[in-house]
Design a binder for these strands. Structure first.
Lengths: 203, 203
DNA sequence: GGCTTTCGCTACGAGTCGTAGCGTAATGCC
DNA sequence: GGCATTACGCTACGACTCGTAGCGAAAGCC
């Protein structure tokens, strides 16, 4: 996740077990303590490693939590349910389920807030979390176009903007509903949301 | 903002000037330092007051920043531009302009993240920031219904859910665009967004 | 004028930060 | 097997922030 090079060629390699233990301990601490009271010393203790080991792998709290939260979104999938509406409802419900986890709630928004002043962190979030989900939009849109449910767009630049717009609308609405309004994005809400997204407010 | 009772009846009253200076200093510190590096001692120094004065008025960093950010949203208005589409575009652009300020970006999302573990803080955000904007949705919707642009809803419970849904979709999309995607919610984007919101993806 | 509350200042223990230094353990290369 | 190299655990450290307490002085209401 944080290392690109596969093999540094000599010496004792870093333990993958330790990596997993640290990330799991981070999520556990997020649940129990939340973002602001989470300390790296505490995470190290929970993971059964030395604090120095943690600092050798991650630059700080921000980077660590991004990686810990990013793993939560790895399970997102887009099964073909036969129609665009059903596909959207399915993936939005998955997203809402993950976002309902306390470790996702307190962790994700905190790092997004920090990322407003840290370009590198923003890029890390984009790569680890955002782009992974954006693929779902691209895929679902292509499927719907193949079914004839959505119009084709010739200009690739225009198509990119549409994908970005849809993504911001879907992810934004679910995040806002879950975190700011603090209400569950349950099946009823998702159905209403999907109807507006597909047919507009007037319908 | 933080005091409900108008007059505690005796002794020296709290200086309103000091209140304003502290909130302004908080926003200034948010711009320069961001959320995580902002300290109350620093804010007190910037405002020219003692740290103890600050702690007498606010319970902590969270509450202080909520009040400091809430003031930014006081200027939001909903001028009648003649059509629902124009009304939406106008207010969304205002919202986007405020959200583009660094003090709003780093402050707002940070307190939202903290609010996931703090019911009282969530309520404070709702009262100071969210409800104020939700009125705009209610008003704009009533206007559009009077114009015949939106269908009337007989059931008040259903109408409330619709308002909440619209609010989450509008605010969520702008926030996500600005903070997560880190792209400006400019006029072109707002126009595209309004079109989808009103007529759906198929149009 | 007298009462009450605010305010500035100083000082404090507690906790966290991120790093350095050292000895030991584990691995790859020859 | 031996050796270089790196990871790891542990301890200790100065610097910083936290939130509070205690004091004297100032400012407003009766």
């Amino acid at each position: 996740m944080q290392s690109r090079s596969p093999a540094p060629r000599a010496g004792r390699p870093r333990s993958a077990t330790v990596d997993a233990a640290i990330l799991a301990a981070t999520r556990e601490a997020l649940v129990e303590l939340g973002w602001s009271k989470l300390t790296l010393g505490d995470v190290a203790t929970r993971a059964g490693v030395a604090k120095t080991t943690l600092y050798r792998r991650w630059a700080g709290k921000n980077e660590l939590v991004v990686d810990a939260v990013a793993e939560l979104f790895d399970q997102l999938e887009l099964p073909d349910r036969g129609s665009l509406a059903a596909d959207i409802e399915g993936v939005v419900l998955q997203f809402a389920t993950i976002l309902a986890l306390p470790e996702a709630k307190s962790g994700l928004m905190a790092v997004v807030a920090e990322a407003t002043r840290d370009e590198a962190l923003r890029e890390r979030i984009r790569a680890s979390v955002v782009d992974r989900q954006k693929r779902l939009v691209v895929e679902g849109r292509a499927r719907a176009q193949a079914r004839g449910e959505l119009p084709l767009e010739a200009d690739p630049g225009s198509a990119d903007r549409t994908v970005d717009l849809i993504f911001d609308m879907v992810a934004g609405a679910v995040v806002h509903r879950t975190l700011v309004s603090a209400e569950p994005a349950d099946e009823e809400w998702v159905r209403s949301f999907t109807r507006v997204l597909l047919h507009g407010l007037g319908s």
